[in-house]
Design a protein around this nucleic acid. Structure first.
Lengths: 143, 143
DNA sequence: TACAATTAAATTGTATGCAATGTAATTATA
DNA sequence: TATAATTACATTGCATACAATTTAATTGTA
């Protein structure tokens, strides 16, 4: 082992994570472009399809994003009519994001995306599961 | 399996990739901040430490980045004195990036970063290797 | 050899992503 | 209860990312 081997790009763990993430997100683009959605908007809608109603703080926890990213993004989703933004009457600090009828309908238009993306990723089912588990182990174990 | 289960955030493979990548990059921040480097600048330097001289196109292939990202980034690294930017005399379209003495010396200052990051990531050595292999399998197999 | 096609960077425009700061509402406490 | 501390979101500033376009240099070809 040479002195600087651990500083080689091909010996990093973070780099393939970073590259992989970006390259797969690019694969979403043709599908999301048709719906005028970005990847970040898409995963935000995923949380909304599930939760229907959630405040920005909670949403940020699910998505690993902060208000600096979410505030403008949520305004855009509101403009498109997929969500509503309303202050919580009990605690005006909280902004409650709720999905609209149009937002719920959007789900039908993205139904096939996950399958199409799976086809791009050349992994056996067992490998995909393994990768998934390892990623969540890292994500939940970071210190 | 419900109709929309494949649209749940927790059933995506790309999302943990995306989140994991970002969260680990945040762990680099305190170390890189001290050196006034960003993560992207850091991995760019990794290629330069290895190759000494490379044009933008080639560099982009290694890093999965295009000239739109690299051009301003390389100008910043030039300002900091870590690289030089010179046109290839044989083919003026090519911009040759070469590492400077200061750039080579920088390597000594980042030597401990990989070890420090490894400590943040709660994986056994075998798991890390497994993750690494799966990531490169995805990266090289994307279609 | 003119000129079309290709190539490599640079530029432009849009959307993140995040640290740091600001603001307003709420909570804790002296 | 006045005010200090905390909290949630918004704003600002900087650095990516990347698609699309432009520019300049080179190559291919009629």
């Amino acid at each position: 082992m040479e002195e600087y081997d651990n500083l080689k790009l091909e010996n990093q763990l973070c780099f393939p994570l970073y590259a992989c993430s970006k390259e797969i997100i690019k694969k979403y683009k043709p599908y999301l472009d048709k719906l005028d959605l970005t990847y970040t908007q898409y995963i935000t809608m995923m949380v909304l399809w599930d939760k229907k109603k959630i405040n920005v703080k909670e949403l940020g926890k699910y998505l690993f994003l902060d208000s600096g990213t979410l505030t403008p993004l949520l305004k855009k989703l509101e403009q498109k009519g997929y969500i509503e933004r309303n202050r919580n009457k009990e605690d005006e600090r909280n902004l409650i994001i709720s999905i609209t009828k149009l937002g719920i309908e959007l789900r039908n238009k993205v139904k096939d995306i996950p399958n199409n993306i799976s086809k791009c990723v050349n992994l056996e089912q067992t490998e995909a599961v393994q990768l998934y588990k390892l990623l969540y182990k890292v994500l939940n174990g970071l210190k």
